[in-house]
């Protein structure tokens, strides 16, 4: 077990160091444009962490990021680069909306059916590049990126000219039975925040993925595939079928990312709702070191930062937050390589 813990410590250390270094470089940049970074960071902390509304926003903003981060992380564990979480999320969200306003059934059924539709949509969207990879060897980085563009254009077309409500770019609202409640319904702490019960679905997904990866024979096989495809093949693991399955599960998880918006917040699919949560999922997975718990923590950080951009907007252009996010990603990739050399 000691090796395991050591590795965990090194990984966590790399992520923490990357975040700290990103904030330090961010401070230098702020000084260069004549802004006091101390003030900005103090305001950020106060507005996001010390303020109940800010905390509630972390829950809300991190929900889709947990799903997409988890999707990318599971892919990485199996040795696959799923860069297509954005497209899978869009297709999943659209399917959830269709099932939400198109079907009618009692709530105890309707919500699971909509979630299943979202999962299925993302899964199918990921299975296409998966099948291309195992049948032809086409690299998934290229194909999943391209599938993103197709998903964006396709959902955009459907929502603008087929399924839209007049005068809007969104679909009809999902039935009341298909909606997930806001957290403010349970606690006044969340008053005024769109944070909703999808958050708990995301946590549940983390638990399930943890179990799958580290307790089930399937996860043992997927991780073996990620670490050493030749050894997995030699040991008789059907590597092609497993890779396709990993794609499908990864895509399904990404497909769930939009349900926070569709089932829990606005209750419809809207063109351009995602704000790049699929792409940010790659960053979340990297920072979270591809572990479900790490993904939750990283999603909190990125969710908090994205709410923080509004909090500090008066002091410094909010784009500084995007700079910080980008720095975190670059530095975590650097830190991972450096720490690997140390750990050897």
């Amino acid at each position: 077990m000691s090796g395991q813990w050591r590795k965990l410590g090194v990984q966590a250390g790399a992520s923490v160091a990357a975040v700290a270094a990103a904030f330090a470089i961010g401070a230098v940049l702020m000084l260069l444009i004549g802004v006091n970074p101390g003030l900005v960071y103090a305001r950020l902390f106060e507005g996001v962490v010390l303020n109940p509304y800010g905390v509630a926003q972390i829950f809300f903003k991190s929900t889709p990021l947990i799903f997409t981060g988890l999707a990318v992380a599971l892919g990485f564990q199996a040795g696959l680069f799923n860069i297509g979480a954005e497209g899978q999320m869009l297709v999943g969200a659209f399917c959830a909306a269709l099932a939400g306003f198109g079907l009618s059934m009692p709530a105890f059924l309707h919500v699971p059916v909509c979630l299943a539709a979202a999962f299925l949509g993302g899964m199918i969207w990921a299975a296409i590049p998966g099948a291309l990879k195992i049948k032809t060897g086409a690299h998934e980085v290229i194909t999943t990126i391209m599938m993103n563009f197709i998903a964006m254009a396709l959902t955009s077309y459907f929502v603008v000219s087929r399924f839209h409500e007049p005068e809007t770019v969104h679909t009809a609202a999902v039935a009341v039975t298909a909606r997930l409640p806001r957290l403010e319904a349970f606690s006044s702490f969340f008053h005024g925040s769109p944070a909703n019960a999808t958050f708990f679905v995301a946590l549940l997904a983390c638990g399930v993925v943890s179990w799958l990866l580290w307790k089930m024979p399937l996860g043992y096989e997927l991780r073996a595939l990620g670490l050493s495809p030749a050894a997995a093949e030699t040991a008789g693991i059907p590597v092609d079928r497993r890779a396709l399955l990993a794609f499908a599960i990864s895509g399904g998880l990404a497909g769930l990312a939009g349900t926070s918006f569709v089932l829990g917040y606005k209750h419809y699919f809207e063109d351009g709702f995602s704000a790049g949560a699929g792409f940010l999922g790659i960053a979340v997975a990297l920072l979270g070191q591809n572990s479900p718990l790490g993904v939750v923590i990283a999603a909190f950080l990125f969710g908090g930062l994205s709410h923080g951009s509004l909090v500090i907007n008066a002091l410094v252009p909010k784009e500084i937050i995007e700079v910080l996010q980008a720095l975190v990603i670059i530095l975590v990739v650097v830190a991972n390589q450096v720490s690997k050399r140390w750990a050897r």
Partner: peptide
């Protein structure tokens, strides 16, 4: 390359390929 998953523990490597045998696992858990 083919004989071992180097990042797996000895215990995980020693059942590689046999990991689904009833002695070591059911469908849901190892």
């Amino acid at each position: 390359r083919r004989g071992l998953v180097l990042d797996y523990a000895v215990s995980e490597n020693v059942v590689l390929g046999r990991h689904r045998e009833p002695e070591f696992a059911s469908t849901w858990t190892i």
